[in-house]
Design a protein around this nucleic acid. Structure first.
Lengths: 224, 224
DNA sequence: CTTAAATGATAGTAACACTATTATAGTAAA
DNA sequence: TTTACTATAATAGTGTTACTATCATTTAAG
């Protein structure tokens, strides 16, 4: 169970570890529900406090502000995703199959068969699609990055680029392709659901199936 | 000069056309400077009013809120970009060259050789990279989309997918590839500047040159 | 049983996102 | 030339957000 280490999120993100108390866990759990329901911009600590049955002040003892709470949630997701990638790929040798698995994990809802899962994965998935770019598309990016807040994301990107190179050792842009894959998996899912004309998804077609097919096609064309 | 029609932004976006008065133009001009400087999150109508030398109330007569002001600015950019694409491509027959031109326009700073340009294109470019996804990654996406706010963006995406099909008529995902190109041009530029480890850019390498090379390589691998 | 840490309760402040009202200057029609 | 309409300025006000501070109370650990 050495993978459990990867589950930890960077402690620059929180003031007090939310996993260390019931209230902390409840804050994160309800935050996921609330952000899913009303979206990040409408989400406030006051509303969250009411949901949890606590006070704003108590939430501020765990997180500096709502931005860092979002960072925390996404980090949790990314580190869980990386864990799943590592776990599901460790007995696969065929790099082609590995890429397929990765794309599946990026597009389908994550499995919840781990005992450690306490959050609503389906909501989390939507949050990742809709809100994740908001954590880095900010003026304070340099400072935030110095706090090593994006380590999980970079690790995931590295893991994928290793597989990319297994498939085609000559390919010159493994990291860019990996970050493109991750980002594109989000925005194509969003577009397929909300701005269909920006994609070639058919009416009533399964969105994550469509995006998976598109990304697989893309990656194999690029790397063959 | 039939292209000038395309310069108009959809009037669901503003309350009063900012192009119809000096104050209106000044609001948009200073908004671009201010959003560039302090970022969308820190940008407020109050600060903008001070910059412009007017009052909050006056700005509210032009735009419903800062979200729609951003939408306006991005629409202006997208419609100018589409104008440039149309204009620069109309005498080119080779689809390969067309794609190269498009990628150049997506990654390099836009030329300002049109008499109609009144805004700081360099700032605009940065705003597009950093802020554009914020206009659609919101809970209100359905309502906003119904107001035809994203028409310019979709038009641009359509234009590019036509070229994609010229290069490879069998390619099954022309729209998704086009929207991926646009989005990836933004996020790879952002990553190359701010989170280099997510790309393969070299230290001191020119960012837009890197992204152009990456995207060209990608597109031609996909479409050949 | 004592003490420290975590939480709850309450209050308060500055900034933000608006809305409303009235005054005034400029312009266009009668 | 008056009238009348429009755009803007000036000012004020409201409810919400994003915090910070203080102090009382509960709880858990030594």
């Amino acid at each position: 169970m050495e993978y459990q280490l990867n589950f930890r999120v960077n402690n620059n993100i929180y003031i007090r570890d939310p996993e260390s108390s019931e209230l902390g866990k409840e804050i994160v759990r309800k935050a996921i529900e609330l952000i899913y329901e009303i979206g990040y911009e409408h989400f406030t600590f006051k509303k969250l406090a009411t949901e949890v049955g606590t006070t704003e002040a108590s939430i501020y003892r765990y997180f500096k502000n709502k931005h860092f709470l979002l960072v925390y949630i996404l980090n949790w997701y990314w580190s869980y995703l990386e864990f799943l990638v590592m776990f599901q790929l460790k007995n696969i040798n065929d790099p082609q199959l590995k890429i397929r698995k990765v794309i599946e994990l990026l597009t389908r809802e994550l499995p919840t068969d781990s005992g450690r899962i306490k959050y609503n994965i389906s909501f989390l998935n939507q949050i990742v699609i809709t809100e994740s770019s908001k954590v880095y598309l900010v003026k304070e990016i340099k400072e935030i990055n110095q706090a090593e807040v994006f380590k999980q994301f970079k690790d995931l990107c590295n893991t994928i680029s290793t597989i990319v190179l297994e498939l085609n050792p000559q390919y010159p842009y493994p990291h860019s392709l990996s970050s493109t894959l991750i980002e594109t998996s989000h925005n194509q899912q969003f577009f397929s659901s909300n701005l269909k004309r920006l994609t070639d998804v058919k009416t009533n077609e399964d969105v994550s199936g469509y995006v998976a097919a598109y990304l697989e096609d893309l990656v194999f064309r690029v790397l063959k």
